[in-house]
Design a protein around this nucleic acid. Structure first.
Lengths: 163, 163
DNA sequence: ATGGACTCATTGCACTTGCAACGAATCAAC
DNA sequence: GTTGATTCGTTGCAAGTGCAATGAGTCCAT
């Protein structure tokens, strides 16, 4: 007697996890293999490429990483010389984090392959399909927004929906 | 001078990761809060619900978990009394893992909420949209299948595409 | 200016994870 | 039957992670 019919391989959250992990893993080849970077370090680097001089909290809010994870990622990046970290000028609690020259160089060596991976993923997908895909993703996020037991979305990810 | 224009929040692998993690986290409330289970343990339990008497390798192939992760998850589940583990009858290397009565009971207490979370995610999404969504996901998987640097897909996840 | 509430970043701790290495069991070839 | 290659599950180890607690800095009301 089977209690409840339930197929993991058809379970939406599981499907998302499988695809996401596979895609992330493939991207990580671009930054882990050559530079030994982790996902957290990769996200921090990329964010710094857009916003010079940010705090830990700021990064935490923008790239979906626990603040302690950001803190340690920044420390590792600093030790690797890819990032500079100075006490905040106006506010002594903040830390101003910025890319070093070496960090910019590292990013430049990484980004092409990362973008290439994304291009490969999207190769057979039409713009309409992709728009639809993102629309559905957004609906799922919206459903989670309604759920008090779900984690709130971070600031940056909400920014996408400015319609 | 900005080296390369790159927006993390628009980067497909990142987007997938954010949604996936949020969804998974919400589901985990259903099994972590009441029973203290991890994602690995959850997946093992669910798989056992379908296939009685499986080996570690079998689970590893079906639910996208490193075999050491499966091994440890099974150990923990055994200690919790949710799972029975006996040496393989025909092949001495294998381990036959099966749900205990307590394990079935635990699953029954968990599954309704998990399914409810999925239902909530899909509430505003039409069947056509969902079919399209899964089709796009499948295209992304197919792209990764072509990439020698990507991890191969596990057996069970390929099974879905039997059209 | 002083005290208390708040915010920021870091750290201690227990736990999980991935990978490689390992030992045991099986299989195939001779 | 014995040897060598293979498969299976587990484990050692180094590293990463989440969460709560900490300590330092800031802001505001008094």
């Amino acid at each position: 007697m089977q209690s409840v019919e339930f197929d993991l391989s058809a379970f939406l959250p599981y499907r998302l996890a499988v695809l996401s992990e596979r895609a992330s893993r493939r991207v990580s080849v671009a930054y882990d293999k050559p530079l030994g970077l982790s996902v957290a370090e990769w996200r921090v680097l990329v964010h710094l490429n857009r916003c010079e001089r940010v705090s830990v909290r700021e990064i935490h809010n923008c790239v979906n990483l626990e603040k302690s994870r950001v803190s340690r990622a920044v420390t590792r990046l600093e030790n690797a010389g890819l990032v500079a970290k100075v006490p905040g000028a106006s506010d002594g609690r903040l830390v101003e984090i910025s890319l070093s020259a070496k960090g910019v160089e590292a990013l430049d060596s990484i980004l092409p392959e990362a973008m290439q991976v994304e291009r490969a993923l999207l190769e057979t997908i039409s713009p309409e399909e992709l728009a639809m895909f993102y629309a559905v993703m957004e609906k799922m996020h919206a459903a989670l927004d309604e759920d008090p037991l779900a984690r709130p979305r971070s600031a940056m990810d909400l920014q996408g929906i400015d319609t």
